[in-house]
């Protein structure tokens, strides 16, 4: 067995790490990052400089009120929209072509037209039916910009949420229905106890996106005289012509949206922990 070597080959030194060098992309990336850092630093400097200004002293409470109004509007219409979306989704799945056709038209209309136009249609358009609405006793509802905005947002988000729900329910495996039927569960109970919980987990991410879109979309209610965060901003700007009104609004919106996104990610992580293998 002389061909077997008696001693092992000594370990070789590890090859040198190739230097990454300053390629074009790396230079571009560092330049862009430097640009962002400069922009962020100057923004922070600008905000710090103005945090004691008259503008902030006069308006910071208004801005907080505005955030509360925005969150109230979005929260209310999201919850009401969720309830309505269940009906719409059920109607779309109906075998009756008339019912499913109406639900389809509803969803198509509210997804195909701008939210701003819908809000105008409800808030201003209700004026065309004033005698009728007064007779029915609903004029107090449509006279008020706040109710109209909540109504428009509810109808709008219900259409989107119905689509989310429909997609999620269809995503649940057919075997789940069959297994529940084999266990002797009625269709309604199967839907509530077996299908919906699984569907909602799939729907978590789109629901989060819808929430963010609603927060952002809610800025348009400032155009129908509601003083949400955007409305307060516009009022402050029109009184002072101080551009920091918009800068503060941008910062606040980013904070609200990012916070909600983080919270939603946490919720999702928590609710799907049984699906992960660690």
């Amino acid at each position: 067995m002389s061909w077997i070597s008696r001693e092992t080959i000594p370990a070789r030194p590890a090859p040198p790490v190739p230097s990454r060098g300053w390629s074009g992309t790396r230079v571009a990336g560092h330049l862009l990052m430097a640009l962002w850092i400069v922009a962020g630093a100057s923004l922070l400097y600008y905000l710090a400089e103005n945090v004691m200004s008259d503008f902030v002293r006069n308006y910071w409470e208004k801005y907080l009120d505005g955030i509360v109004v925005t969150l109230q509007l979005v929260g209310l219409s999201m919850v009401a929209g969720a309830a309505l979306s269940l009906l719409v989704a059920l109607a779309r799945a109906s075998r009756n072509p008339f019912v499913s056709g109406i639900a389809y038209a509803y969803v198509y209309f509210f997804r195909g037209t701008p939210l701003l136009a819908q809000t105008f249609l409800i808030y201003y358009g209700a004026g065309s039916f004033r005698p009728f609405l007064s007779d029915v006793g609903l004029w107090w509802f449509f006279r008020d910009a706040w109710y109209c905005a909540v109504f428009a947002f509810t109808l709008n988000t219900a259409a989107y949420q119905a689509e989310i729900l429909r997609g999620a329910v269809r995503n649940v495996d057919k075997g789940q229905w069959e297994a529940a039927a084999a266990l002797g569960l009625r269709k309604g109970i199967t839907f509530w106890k077996v299908i919906l919980p699984q569907a909602l987990i799939v729907a978590l991410r789109p629901y989060g996106n819808e929430l963010i879109l609603m927060i952002k979309g809610s800025a348009i209610v400032s155009l129908v005289t509601i003083f949400d965060l955007m409305g307060e901003t516009r009022r402050a700007y029109s009184r002072t012509f101080d551009f920091q009104a918009y800068i503060w609004a941008a910062v606040l919106y980013l904070i609200v949206v990012e916070t909600l996104r983080r919270i939603w990610d946490e919720i999702e992580l928590r609710l799907t922990r049984h699906l992960r293998r660690s």
């Binding site: 390629s23 992309t25 790396r26 571009a28 990336g29 560092h30 862009l32 990052m33 640009l35 962002w36 927060i215 952002k216 979309g217 809610s218 800025a219 348009i220 400032s222 155009l223 955007m230 901003t233 516009r234 918009y246 609004a249 941008a250 919106y253 980013l254 949206v257 990012e258």
Partner: peptide, 29 residues
């Protein structure tokens, strides 16, 4: 999509800002 981390984070900051701001506010800004 690039392998360069600085370029990636620069791009991510960009999208975070413009996806987080309401469109109406971006317009006014």
């Amino acid at each position: 999509n690039s392998g360069e981390p600085s370029l990636r984070s620069a791009a991510n900051i960009y999208t975070t800002i413009f996806r987080g701001l309401p469109e109406l506010l971006t317009l006014f800004l």
